[in-house]
Design a protein around this nucleic acid. Structure first.
Length: 592
RNA sequence: UGGCUUAUAGUUCAAUGGAUGAGAACACUUCACUACGAAUGAAGAAAUGAAAGUUCGAAUCUUUCUAAGCCAACCA
C-alpha cells in the first residue's frame, strides 16, 4: 500500500479523534512536500480550517502532535507553515520499504482482476507503408495494453485492417496499368513500399488525365469524375464487391505483399496482436442493428428509405446509419464490429487508439450503442491522440512529405551506431550483440520521443533535427540503467549481507521516496490511459539517481552497511527503470 | 455557422485548485573526468495568448475575446 493511502486514513482518524469531525478520504489533499520545506508529505488543511473554527497553525500543531504520537513508527516530526502540515516519515519506514522491495522484478504490478480490456490499434490501410503517425499510434496502443496488463487486466490487442475500398483499388489498377507483372520479389522492394509506389503512380496518372480533359474544355469537377483511370477504379470496386475472380485474385496478391511488409515492420518495432480483423470481412456487419434500432424506436426511416438516428438532443447531429440503397456506412460497420468483439471476448472495456480527427465519430459510436442499451457500451473508450506534424504542417502522402516508419527506424539505428562507435565502450561486443544494442537504443529513442508527450496533444517532428540522445530521452534513461548494472556486476555476490541502517542522507531519502511512488504512477497511467506519465516518471528517477550517484559513492561508501544499503537502492532503481521502460515497450541494455 | 481540442522560457514538454522561486530538457554562458561508466553532474539566464469573474488560494474552474488544429460527407 502506498504511503499516501496509509497517511490518509490516519489523518481522517485524527480529525475524528480530535474534533469529532468527519471527512471523506478523497476530500483530503496530501502532497509531497516542496523541496524548500522540511518534511516528506504535506497535509493541506484549508479545506477543513473553516468548519473547525481554529487557526491553521493551531490545527496543524494539534493534528501533527496527534499523528506523531499515535504513529511513531511512521511519523517522526512535523512542522506547520500557514495551512500546510508537513510530516516527516521515519527513516526506518523507508529502509523497511527498500529492503522488502529492492530485488522485486514486478514491484508495482497487480494481480489479475478478472476483467478483460480490448485495445485496438495500428489499423492501417493496405495501400501504403506505415509512417510516423502510425508509429505514435502503435507505440501508444502497445504501451497502454502493457500498462493495463501490469494493472491486472487481461488484455486483447486487436487490429482492424482497412483492406478494401476505393483506395485499395487505386493501387491495384495502377499496378495493372504500369507494373508489367513486377512484384516485390522481382524488384527487391519491401511489399508495402512496393504497393505504395503504385498508389502514388495512380495519383500521378489521375492528375495527368484530369488536366488533359480540362485542356480539352471539360470542367474540373466533371473531369475528376470522367478520368478513365478513376472510372476504371470504380468499376474495379464494383467487380470486387461482385466477387469477380481476377479482381479478387489481384486484391489478394497485392494485400499479401503489403502484409509481408507490415509483418517485418511490426516485428522490428515490437508490435503484436492477438486478433486481426479485416474490413473485407466486417464491412457488411451491423445491419442487424438497423432492424433492432428501428424496432426500439432509436432509429427512424426517412421517405427515401434511408435510416437515421437523431442525436440533436445530445448536442450532435442526425447521423445516417443505412443508405437508401440498403448498404451500410462506416458507423454501421463499427457497431457491428464492436458487437462481434464483445461476442468473442466479452470485454469490460474496449479502447480504440485512433487519431483525434475521429473524436466525433467515436462519440457517435458510443452514444448509439448506449441508446441501444448494449451492455458493453459504457466500456467503449477512445484513446484519442494528436497528429504528428512536420514544421511545414500535416504530412501529406501526395506531396511526398510523409516520414516513412521504416526509414525513420533505419535512421535512428544509424545515429545509435555512430554514437556508440564514437564512444567506444563496447568494443568487445560481437556483431550480433552490437546489432541488438543499436536496435535497443534506436527504438528506445524513438519510442520515448513519441510516448513522452501527452497523447491528446499534437506534436511536431522536425526531421532536420534528429532525435536527441541527451536529456529527456530514452538513451539517457538506458544509460543510467547500464551504469547501475555496471556497479551491480562489480558487487556480485556481496548482496545478502547485513543491511545498512542509520540516518538517511537527503539524496538517499529522495530516491527511496521516488521509488515508492512507482505503483501509484502506474495506476495513474492506467486510469488516464496515458503512457507519458510513465516516461516522465522514469526520466525523473534516472535523473535523481544520477544526482545521487555523483554525490555519494556506492562501492566506496562510508561503511560496509552503507554500501549494502546503497547497493539495494541501486538495484531497486535499476529494476524500476527496467520495469517502467518495459511498460513503454523499451528495452534497457546491460552495457551501452 | 456550430461542436471538440490546444495555447506555458528562443524551442520541445511538465505541474489531482495549493506554499510570495510554475518544474524539466534542448540550445546558450561557465565549471567538474588520477572518480562505482562524462551518452554524466553542478551553476547561470529565460515563460502561464488577452481580459473579467468564482475563493483563503487559479496555469488549472466559469464567461468573453484572439490564434491554431480537427470534426460537422449517403468518404474511409
Amino acid at each position: 500500500m502506498s504511503i499516501i493511502s496509509q497517511i490518509k486514513p490516519l489523518a481522517v482518524k485524527a480529525l475524528k479523534d480530535l474534533y469529532n469531525y468527519d471527512i471523506a478520504g478523497p476530500d483530503l489533499t496530501i502532497n509531497t512536500t516542496k523541496p524548500e520545506f522540511e518534511g516528506d508529505y504535506t497535509l493541506v488543511m484549508f479545506s477543513f480550517v473553516k468548519q473547525l473554527k481554529k487557526s491553521p497553525e493551531q490545527l496543524g500543531n494539534e493534528i501533527g502532535e496527534h499523528l506523531t504520537k499515535s504513529n511513531p513508527e511512521i511519523f517522526t516530526a512535523f512542522n506547520v507553515i500557514k495551512g500546510f502540515l508537513n510530516l516527516t516519515v521515519a527513516d526506518n519506514y523507508w529502509i523497511n520499504f527498500l529492503q522488502s522491495n529492492f530485488s522485486s522484478k514486478d514491484f508495482g504490478s497487480k494481480p489479475g482482476n478478472g476483467e478483460t480490456v480490448m485495445v485496438e490499434y495500428s489499423s492501417p490501410n493496405t495501400n501504403k507503408p506505415l509512417h510516423l503517425g502510425h508509429l505514435r499510434n502503435i507505440f501508444l496502443g502497445w504501451s497502454i495494453a502493457r500498462i493495463l496488463k501490469e494493472s491486472g487486466y487481461k488484455t486483447v490487442k486487436s487490429c482492424i485492417v482497412n483492406d478494401r475500398g476505393i483506395h485499395i483499388c487505386k493501387s491495384m489498377i495502377a499496378w495493372q496499368l504500369f507494373a508489367n507483372g513486377a512484384s516485390p520479389r522481382s524488384t527487391g522492394i519491401k511489399g508495402d513500399h512496393f504497393v505504395g509506389e503504385y498508389y502514388v503512380k495512380f495519383n500521378d496518372e489521375y492528375k495527368k488525365q484530369v488536366e488533359e480533359l480540362v485542356i480539352r474544355g471539360m470542367k474540373k469537377e466533371e473531369a475528376e469524375k470522367e478520368a478513365p483511370i478513376m472510372k476504371g477504379t470504380q468499376q474495379m470496386l464494383l467487380d470486387w464487391e461482385a466477387g469477380k475472380p481476377e479482381v479478387i485474385g489481384l486484391w489478394e496478391k497485392m494485400n499479401g505483399w503489403v502484409y509481408e511488409g507490415f509483418d517485418i515492420t511490426y516485428k522490428r518495432i515490437g508490435a503484436d496482436f492477438h486478433k486481426m480483423y479485416y474490413e473485407s470481412n466486417t464491412y457488411l456487419l451491423g445491419k442487424q442493428f438497423v432492424e433492432e434500432g428501428l424496432k426500439q424506436g432509436v432509429f427512424f426511416r426517412k421517405d427515401d428509405g434511408s435510416v437515421w438516428i437523431d442525436l440533436t438532443a445530445d448536442g450532435l447531429d442526425e447521423k445516417l446509419v443505412l443508405r437508401k440503397d440498403g448498404t451500410s456506412v462506416y458507423i454501421t460497420q463499427d457497431l457491428g464490429l464492436a458487437d462481434q468483439k464483445y461476442e468473442e471476448f466479452k470485454y469490460n472495456q474496449s479502447i480504440y487508439v485512433i487519431a483525434d480527427e475521429q473524436n466525433y465519430h467515436m462519440k457517435v459510436l458510443k452514444l448509439i450503442l448506449q441508446k441501444l442499451n448494449k451492455p458493453y457500451a459504457e466500456g467503449i473508450d477512445h484513446l484519442s491522440y494528436g497528429m504528428v506534424e512536420l514544421p511545414s504542417g500535416r504530412m501529406k502522402s501526395r506531396e511526398g512529405t510523409v516520414v516513412d516508419a521504416d526509414d525513420m527506424v533505419a535512421e535512428m539505428v544509424n545515429v545509435a551506431k555512430h554514437k556508440t562507435e564514437e564512444l567506444g565502450k563496447v568494443k568487445d561486443f560481437t556483431e550480433a550483440e552490437l546489432k541488438e544494442l543499436y536496435d535497443t537504443i534506436a527504438l528506445g529513442a524513438l519510442k520515448f520521443f513519441l510516448l513522452r508527450v501527452d497523447p491528446k496533444k499534437r506534436m511536431i517532428f522536425n526531421p532536420e533535427e534528429s532525435i536527441d540522445f541527451h536529456g529527456f530521452t530514452g538513451p539517457f534513461v538506458q544509460y543510467t540503467h547500464a551504469r547501475i548494472r555496471s556497479i551491480l556486476r562489480k558487487a556480485e555476490g556481496t548482496r545478502d549481507k547485513a543491511q545498512g541502517t542509520g540516518g538517511l542522507l537527503k539524496l538517499e531519502r529522495d530516491l527511496i521516496i521516488l521509488l515508492e511512488q512507482y505503483p501509484t504512477i502506474i495506476e495513474q497511467a492506467c486510469t488516464e490511459h496515458n503512457p507519458s506519465v510513465i516516461a516522465i516518471y522514469v526520466f525523473n528517477l534516472a535523473k535523481m539517481f544520477n544526482t545521487f550517484y555523483t554525490e555519494h559513492s556506492v562501492m566506496n561508501a562510508e561503511s560496509e552497511e552503507k554500501k549494502q544499503f546503497r547497493l539495494q537502492l541501486s538495484e531497486m532503481t535499476a529494476n524500476v527503470i527496467a520495469s517502467g521502460m518495459g511498460l513503454l515497450g523499451i528495452k534497457v541494455p546491460e552495457r551501452m
